[in-house]
């Protein structure tokens, strides 16, 4: 039977390996995640693995975000979505996640519960199981409330092989929706620029979207446009594909609030982070079918063509509204707000 956890905040004793730790883990984590195995490991089997040619996909990512809760999500939701998306954009069907927590002494237990609840909700929605995990507690100041590392395992069907070096000149670049919502939301939520808006993070798991799209058309390659924004994702793809990518400024889906945030702080929305946005390439003749398949899924309602691959040196360029062209380079460091 689980003992009720009476503490309001995490203390170092919750990381000591004793009863306090056991109570924290059982009351906050395992009660919610409900892992099948009582051992310190997950033991896994799936029918899809028996198909000839199927491959395992395995990925890992660490999550830190300030503030830890923000409009449209929290660190738990990002930790599930981010790793699910890393699997999904490679064509894998996400199945299992691990979750490891580094918790700062003094963190409210209620906050932990909210984070865990949002992980469970997101995992259920996207059809993955959180099957194993770990917690560590560190002294005050050694972490910013909670850091989460999730690893994910999925299965890539035999006939699917998404890779950026498969992109051909003439292929069409499609995004699933608006750009920069997450970055602009976090900027406002941090509060140091004292901006407010009704923006919400786009944080979402894209497993269903990718499944629907890959089932409908052959997708050449896909990336999620997280840190560094759509510009960085496209640059990585151009580099790997060995060809140029051209996007159209007027085709970029941007909310007015994201544009407003960028105008005020002198930022470029192409570099703002997303947490539920992907860009994929398909042959031009499959573009319409891809768009239709994407738009049939909630997270793909805003799917739209933003550009194309072209023969040429591997770089990303943008056609401006009046026919000018400019290079869209990788970001050097963090984008800093500016006044000039």
């Amino acid at each position: 039977m689980t003992k009720v956890l009476r503490d309001e905040r995490v203390t170092l004793s919750h990381g000591s390996g004793g009863k306090a730790m056991r109570d924290l883990i059982s009351s906050v984590f395992t009660e919610s995640f409900q892992p099948e195995s009582k051992e310190d490991q997950a033991r896994l089997m799936h029918d899809a693995l028996l198909q000839p040619g199927a491959r395992l996909a395995f990925t890992t990512d660490s999550y830190v975000v300030t503030p830890i809760e923000f409009p449209g999500g929290d660190i738990g939701k990002i930790a599930v979505c981010g790793t699910v998306n890393d699997l999904a954009v490679g064509g894998a069907k996400p199945l299992w996640l691990s979750a490891a927590f580094i918790i700062e002494e003094g963190t409210e237990i209620a906050l932990l519960r909210r984070i865990v609840a949002s992980m469970v909700k997101e995992a259920d929605k996207t059809g993955v199981k959180i099957v194993t995990g770990d917690t560590k507690v560190v002294g005050r100041g050694s972490a910013d409330k909670v850091f989460i590392t999730t690893s994910g395992v999925g299965i890539i069907p035999a006939d699917r092989d998404l890779r950026a070096d498969a992109i051909q000149p003439g292929d069409v670049a499609i995004v699933n929706g608006v750009l920069g919502d997450h970055g602009a939301t976090i900027l406002a939520a941090r509060g140091d620029m004292m901006l407010s808006s009704d923006l919400q993070s786009d944080c979402a798991a894209l497993g269903h979207l990718m499944e629907a799209t890959c089932t409908a058309v052959p997708v050449r390659a896909c990336r999620d446009a997280t840190r560094g924004g759509i510009a960085s994702a496209l640059n990585e793809m151009a580099e790997a594909a060995g060809c140029a990518i051209e996007i159209d400024e007027e085709a970029l889906p941007l909310r007015p609030e994201v544009k407003g945030t960028c105008e005020i702080l002198g930022l470029d929305p192409l570099y703002l982070a997303n947490e539920g946005t992907l860009v994929l390439f398909v042959a031009a003749e499959h573009a319409e079918a891809a768009l239709a398949a994407m738009r049939s899924v909630d997270t793909g309602r805003g799917a739209t063509v933003i550009g194309r691959a072209k023969a040429g040196r591997p770089m990303v360029t943008m056609r401006t509204a009046f026919g000018g062209t400019r290079i869209v380079d990788m970001l050097v460091g963090e984008q800093l707000p500016r006044i000039c």
């Binding site: 401006t320 009046f322 000018g324 000039c340």
Partner: peptide, 16 residues
């Protein structure tokens, strides 16, 4: 003004 320099390049006016 540097703001004009930025705009010239951002919109590709130097090449137009």
């Amino acid at each position: 003004c540097g703001g004009h320099t930025h705009a010239i390049f951002r919109y590709g006016l130097d090449r137009l």
